[in-house]
Design a protein around this nucleic acid. Structure first.
Length: 288
DNA sequence: CACTTGACCTGTCCGC
DNA sequence: TGCGGACAGGTCAAGT
């Protein structure tokens, strides 16, 4: 679930809360969640101060003053939640996770030197945090291969169209989910943007007209921006850096709305499988 | 090479 | 009420 808008929302919250704080200790019980060498942890993490929090695609980057950075992928169920000193007192929304952390899904605990905490929770254990030299981030294999950021100025229609050409035999949904084509779209926003552009997700990418590519390009940007403005989507697990849910799904047109009427034509939204993923469409609005 | 499928995990929901 | 199985999204490894 954490796709670009969710990770962007977490980034903004973390930036407010952890920049300037110094890491006092780190604790983890599932090595795959935090596969770092003890030497690097001792030398470059403990005692380091947080300088900045950034995002690339669905990856969070926490820069430290030790010339190292923590890079974090939330995958499906990851959460990064900051808990301040008043964690045992009042002041948190009743539904908030904050008063309940750590819990059985907590994989990594960071303590800052003022008794505040950052918890990495991840029910399904697919997410990870890695400590890497800041100067080496762009050489990390996964990051090196990422396509353009859809909300940056260099993601033009022409760039999008050129990247689609390489994948003409694949269904368009599989292509926009491919992080090496463009960075940050996941299952929710793939379905939403394809509905908005009135393109069937199984359409072979090579069959798309120029007009459809132009439309899809602008709808991807619009859907991502709309979601960021609503704090992202919470389907089940996602929360922001303060433990709060996002509300974008109130505005969703098809995602998880199978059985409901299409908001454009009234036909029933159905769920199919495309490229191995659950896919929500209106068969009237979205023709192959 | 382009493209698809299975593995990684846990929790929840559905049918018998 | 219990239990097996399908399913959930993100990415990589392995297979066609």
């Amino acid at each position: 679930m954490p796709e670009l808008p969710e990770v962007e929302t977490v980034k903004r919250g973390l930036k407010q809360h952890i920049v300037g704080r110094t890491i006092k200790s780190v604790d983890f019980d599932w090595p795959k969640s935090f596969p770092n060498s003890e030497y690097d942890v001792q030398s470059f993490l403990l005692g380091a101060k947080v300088l900045d929090v950034r995002r690339r695609a669905k990856v969070l980057i926490i820069d430290l003053n030790s010339d190292y950075s923590l890079i974090c992928h939330l995958k499906m169920t990851g959460q990064l939640v900051f808990v301040g000193q008043k964690r045992f007192g009042a002041g948190h929304p009743s539904g908030s996770l904050v008063g309940k952390l750590p819990d059985k899904s907590t994989r990594v605990k960071f303590e800052f030197n003022d008794q505040t905490h950052l918890f990495f929770n991840d029910q399904r254990k697919f997410g990870w945090i890695k400590l890497v030299p800041t100067a080496q981030i762009q050489n990390v294999d996964f990051i090196k291969k990422l396509g353009p950021e859809p909300l940056e100025a260099d993601f033009t229609v022409q760039v999008f169209a050129d990247r689609l050409k390489r994948r003409s035999a694949s269904p368009i949904k599989a292509v926009i989910l491919d992080q090496t084509v463009l960075a940050g779209v996941g299952n929710i926003y793939a379905d939403e943007s394809l509905w908005a552009a009135q393109i069937h997700p199984a359409t072979k990418t090579g069959k798309l007209t120029k007009a459809q590519i132009v439309k899809l390009h602008s709808e991807i940007v619009a859907v991502l921006n709309l979601s960021i403005n609503h704090g992202g989507s919470t389907d089940k697990n996602y929360v922001d850096a303060e433990g709060n849910k996002g509300s974008y799904l109130k505005f969703a047109k098809v995602f998880r709305l199978n059985g409901s009427p299409c908001k454009r034509c009234g036909n029933v939204v159905t769920k199919i499988r495309v490229a191995g993923r659950g896919t929500h469409i209106c068969t009237v609005c979205q023709k192959t």
